[in-house]
Simulated assay, not measured.
Amino acid sequence: MTELLPGKNAVIYGGGGAIGGAVARVFAREGARVFIAGRTQPTLDAVARDITATGGTVETAQVDVFDQEAVEKHAAAVAATAGGIDIALNAVSIMHDQGTPLADLSLEEFLRPIDGFLRTLFITSKAVARHMGQERPGVILTLSEPGAKLAVGGILGHGVSAAGKEAFSRLLAAELAPRVRVVDIRPHAVVDAPAAGSYTRDLFTRSAAASGQSVQQFLEQGLAQGTLLKRLPTLAQIAETAAFLASDRAAAMTGTVANLSGGALVD
């Protein structure tokens, strides 16, 4: 079967996390040379071992994505080594509050996901964009959540940050066209993320406890039932979608959102 990403150079920030690691494994399987960066070397090493065990090519780097200078140096080093950057994904997670209404929500808690997610997205996008689109078109992939459009209480900071990420991606697509495509991926809560070490378990602990359920039950029996498909996306489904979007088969897509919410949102 023909690989989707033969000879492509892909940088994944948060590459040791649940989503970032899943995407890195699929990118490598599809022929990309993968560069994974993050703050925790052991988790990066675990992903790298999986990739090399299946014959893939991967390099790791311990990088704090809040350090703009460090991110820019890393991107420049990748470009110098590989001859450019074709694909970039920011899969960095920022732990934040969900479930607290305005009356009890502090300004700090409200701003934490907005500042955290958008700051890292700005830093990483700026660092990679200058190394894209010279010899062949580049692709920047971003991640958001249904909170960008949901009208529910208790997710003020989360929802605003998700909407900000989608707006950032759309506007960046206009700015970088035609040499770089920008596509946002909007999954719902990921059903198998807790088992993969994601912060999803901590994120939904309060809501699950309030409903008398475990986090896994809350995901499978609570959130999933609010979707048209009655199921939440898996890490594999997100990773496979990311590989398609990063490939030349999706060359006509930019400035848009790939909705993987299971029908929690119908665009």
Rank of each mutant, 00 (worst) to 15 (best):
M1C: 15
N9M: 11
V26N: 02
E30Y: 06
G31N: 03
R33G: 07
V34Q: 00
I36W: 02
Q41K: 15
A48L: 08
R49N: 11
I51V: 10
I51C: 04
T52A: 11
T52H: 11
T52E: 14
A53P: 06
T54F: 10
T54R: 13
T57A: 12
T57Y: 08
V58H: 00
V58P: 01
T60S: 09
A61K: 06
Q62A: 15
D67C: 10
E72C: 11
H74T: 04
H74R: 08
A82L: 04
G84H: 07
I85W: 06
V92C: 05
S93T: 12
I94W: 00
M95F: 15
H96V: 05
T100Q: 06
L102N: 09
L102Q: 10
D104A: 14
L105M: 10
L105P: 03
E108C: 09
E108M: 08
E109K: 12
L111E: 11
P113M: 00
I114K: 04
K126A: 09
A129C: 10
R130S: 14
R130N: 13
Q134L: 13
I140L: 06
S144C: 10
E145A: 12
P146I: 02
G147V: 02
G147R: 00
A148V: 00
V152F: 11
G153Y: 05
G154L: 09
L156Y: 14
G159N: 08
V160H: 13
S161Y: 02
A162E: 06
K165G: 15
F168E: 04
S169E: 00
L171P: 09
L172Q: 05
V182E: 04
V183M: 08
R186S: 04
P187H: 07
H188V: 09
H188T: 09
D192W: 08
P194R: 05
P194I: 02
A195V: 15
A195T: 15
L203C: 08
A208S: 12
A210T: 10
A210H: 12
S211Y: 14
Q213P: 04
F218A: 02
L219H: 00
A224E: 02
Q225H: 13
Q225W: 07
L228M: 14
L228N: 12
L229F: 11
K230H: 12
P233A: 05
Q237P: 07
E240Y: 10
A242F: 03
L245M: 06
A246Q: 01
S247C: 05
S247G: 06
A250C: 08
A251Y: 06
A251E: 12
A251C: 11
A252F: 10
A252K: 09
T254C: 04
S261G: 14
G263R: 06
G263L: 05
A264Y: 00
A264S: 12
V266T: 14
